[in-house]
Design a protein around this nucleic acid. Structure first.
Lengths: 157, 157
DNA sequence: CCGTTTTCTTGATTCAGTCAAATCAAGGAC
DNA sequence: GTCCTTGATTTGACTGAATCAAGAAAACGG
């Protein structure tokens, strides 16, 4: 990695602090971590780190575009460092695992709703819901009737 | 409307109760109401209605497929009665207004991510973010730099 | 090394939503 | 029509994510 996290923080007009580097480190290792996981992970590098500090750091990172916040329905917010590359997400209904997926073929069509109802659209967010490989393996029978999580609606395949 | 709400409740195996009819009434009038708005609205028809009752009713409606729950990032959950017609949503970053949008041309492509990473996808959820007509009119200057809500990331148009 | 400014810490608070026990009503049986 | 069983609602306490505020600490330009 040529540009260090410290460089990127400075470039974004943020001071380089230990909590911020710790959080960035955790995010680099766990690309879709929630605030709690980040606190736990970052404490290995900076034991005195408080949850509020993490929230503050994440807010700063998101505000400056270094990180992105994603909020899957029914789960705490997740944070990721992949920004500006137009990717979407696969979310497992069972375990909540998240995987990145590059813009699908035909994605451009997604950006042009048939009727914008007067809205000026600046972003299209796509979330694919399903079961990850592990959860399929663990509970293939329950796959048809996902427990506690049906009827989120939307486009059915 | 030929089939009444009472009929639909019975068809779904649910008892016909005043709280449920009140909630359905409010949802019919406000197609994207949050729990709080539903409580307020339903109390005009049934003053003693408690918030927990509304949560219970909504849970039952969602579980039986009579209603759908949508959870825009950063806002309380909304509920709607349009189910099973594969529509998506336009959400205003400024005021939170939600509008329905029928499946865009090319929507089928949305259901086929280029790489599913081992997931079995059963649903694709699409949310279009932008500014509604009213908010554009009120604050055309702030439109470029949306207050308190930037960097949600995703596909940029 | 010092001072200013940003950032972090500590603690309290909000808000959406859930859980559990007790009461009450819907709708079938009689 | 009345009783009874089951399911729904009420009441109240509780969880968990996230935010706010005030003081302490650290970053970094001079």
């Amino acid at each position: 990695m040529e540009t260090t996290w410290a460089d990127r923080l400075r470039a974004a007009g943020l001071r380089v602090t230990r909590p911020r580097l710790s959080v960035l480190d955790v995010l680099a290792e766990h690309p879709h971590a929630d605030a709690d996981a980040i606190v736990t992970g970052a404490r290995e590098l900076h034991p005195s780190l408080s949850p509020q500090a993490v929230y503050g750091v994440l807010k700063a990172l998101v505000a400056t575009g270094l990180a992105r916040r994603i909020e899957p329905a029914g789960a705490p917010a997740l944070f990721e460092l992949r920004v500006g590359d137009n990717h979407h997400h696969l979310v497992c209904r069972s375990c909540g695992a998240v995987a990145d997926v590059d813009c699908a073929v035909g994605a451009v069509a997604c950006l042009t709703p048939s009727d914008t109802a007067g809205f000026v659209v600046d972003e299209a967010e796509v979330v694919f819901w399903g079961l990850c490989r592990d959860c399929r393996a663990v509970a293939p029978a329950e796959a048809a009737q996902v427990p506690e999580q049906d009827n989120r609606g939307g486009v059915r395949a």
